[in-house]
Amino acid sequence: MSDDGFVKVCPLGDIPEDGPLAVEIDDTPVVLVRSGDEVFALRDVCSHAEVALSEGEVYDGTIECWLHGSCFDLRTGKPTNPPASAPVPTYRVRLDGDDVHVSLRPGSDDDQTT
Rank of each mutant, 00 (worst) to 15 (best):
S2G: 12
D3L: 14
D4W: 05
G5R: 11
G5D: 10
G5Y: 10
F6A: 06
V7M: 10
V7N: 09
K8H: 13
V9Y: 08
L12V: 01
G13L: 00
G13E: 00
D14Y: 01
I15Y: 02
I15F: 03
P16E: 00
E17I: 12
D18E: 15
G19K: 13
P20I: 02
L21C: 05
L21S: 03
V23I: 13
E24V: 07
I25L: 04
I25M: 05
I25E: 01
D26Q: 13
D27L: 09
T28N: 14
P29N: 12
V31R: 00
S35L: 13
E38G: 06
A41I: 04
L42F: 00
L42V: 03
D44E: 03
D44N: 03
C46N: 04
H48M: 02
A49K: 04
E50A: 15
A52F: 13
L53C: 05
S54I: 01
E55G: 11
E55S: 13
E55R: 14
G56E: 07
E57S: 09
E57L: 08
V58C: 05
Y59V: 14
D60R: 10
D60C: 10
G61K: 08
I63A: 06
C65N: 01
W66E: 09
W66L: 09
L67T: 12
H68D: 13
H68M: 14
H68N: 12
G69D: 10
G69P: 12
S70Y: 10
C71H: 07
L74T: 01
T76I: 12
T76A: 11
P83Y: 05
A84F: 12
A84C: 11
A84V: 11
S85R: 15
P87C: 01
P87L: 01
V88W: 00
V88L: 00
P89E: 01
T90R: 00
Y91S: 10
R92F: 09
R92E: 08
L95C: 05
L95N: 03
D96I: 14
D96M: 14
D99Q: 09
D99V: 05
D99L: 05
V100N: 02
H101N: 08
S103Y: 12
L104C: 05
P106V: 05
D110W: 13
D110R: 13
D111T: 15
Q112R: 14
